[in-house]
Simulated scan of single mutants.
Amino acid sequence: MEFPWAAEDVPFVDTKQMIEVDRAMIEDFHIELIQMMENAGRNLAHLARHRFLDGDPRGKTVIVLAGTGGNGGGALVAARRLHNYGATVQVFLTKPDEAFTPVPGHQLDILRRMNLPIGFVADLEKPVVSGVEAAVSADLILDGIIGYSLQGAPRGAATELIRWANQQNAPILALDAPSGVGTTSGTVFTPAIQATATMTLALPKAGLLANGVAAQVGELYLADISVPPDLYSEPALQLNVGQLFAQSDIIRLK
């Protein structure tokens, strides 16, 4: 399946503007975070299925790397959907369940109730994770470690998950931005995910077009999370955004 290329010029936003988009979605339009997260995760699973899993995830193995915030929550939604599609899915977290913010924590609780195998960095070196053999030869790795909230170089378990992912032969699909890349400046911190493709959300982040980030971003896609176009024209943003997703919930930018 080929995803359509953007039919018009697409504005890029910095981190401050994206924070304003999220605020307006929730406070002004009453479109809640859990709705946006479901849209992000559904589209991530859809892109994974058709770009990397030959249109049929059955019999394929997907490793999902998830942080504790919204980026991780979107990846956990994708994990649930890919499992439902028939993929063998294993999830590795940066921190224990209690460290997750409420909405991503809700997504994690769902996966626990579905009995998906969930582990941590140390489990990547073990032969068995929750009764399922650790698949270091995965067909696809989803990067949901750090989103636009990145402040400085990744730390702790996030660094270990990033380094592990970059050492694998499997393609990496990053959600919103490759973990370790500044979404406003385009700074490539050490370490940073080297993605085969990145699916960014709502509007592309300015840092993804910066010089020197192409090796981290890979192919660049944009996915709909149901932001009303009128939201962008409000005084805090003053952006002219049309019906970007008229033909598809996912469009290609580069």
Rank of each mutant, 00 (worst) to 15 (best):
L237G: 09
A135R: 15
L108T: 09
P4H: 03
P178K: 08
R81T: 06
I172T: 08
I146R: 00
L33C: 01
P117N: 10
V62S: 09
L201N: 07
G212Q: 00
V128I: 15
T68P: 10
Q238S: 14
P228G: 07
T187W: 00
K205F: 02
G180S: 11
M114F: 11
I63C: 14
S226P: 09
A236R: 15
P235S: 06
A6D: 10
I31R: 02
L161H: 03
A214T: 07
T101Y: 05
P229C: 07
T61S: 15
F12D: 11
V62N: 07
N71P: 03
P154R: 07
N211Y: 04
G212E: 01
Q243N: 15
E234A: 14
D54Y: 12
Q168K: 14
A40H: 01
I146N: 05
P11A: 06
I145V: 01
V129H: 08
F29Y: 15
Q151R: 15
Q17F: 01
G69I: 08
R23E: 06
D143G: 00
H106E: 13
T68F: 04
A153Y: 02
F12N: 11
V103W: 07
F12V: 15
N43T: 02
I193E: 00
R252Q: 14
I31F: 12
E125D: 13
A195M: 03
T101R: 13
S248K: 11
G207D: 03
Y232A: 07
F12Y: 14
K16A: 15
A99H: 14
E133P: 05
T196L: 05
S233K: 05
Y85M: 11
I145Y: 04
N71H: 07
I146D: 02
P191H: 09
F29H: 13
G67Y: 06
Q238H: 13
G70R: 00
G218I: 08
Q90P: 06
I19W: 13
A165C: 01
H46T: 13
L222N: 01
E98P: 08
A215W: 00
Q243H: 14
V213S: 02
L140K: 03
D249T: 15
E125F: 12
R163M: 04
L203C: 00
L239Q: 01
S226V: 06
V217F: 04
S179E: 05
D9T: 14
N240W: 12
V21S: 10
V62K: 01
A157F: 09
P154G: 10
L173S: 10
N84W: 09
V62M: 00
Q167E: 15
E234R: 15
L76Q: 03
I34V: 13
L253R: 09
L237E: 00
F245N: 04
V91L: 09
R112Y: 12
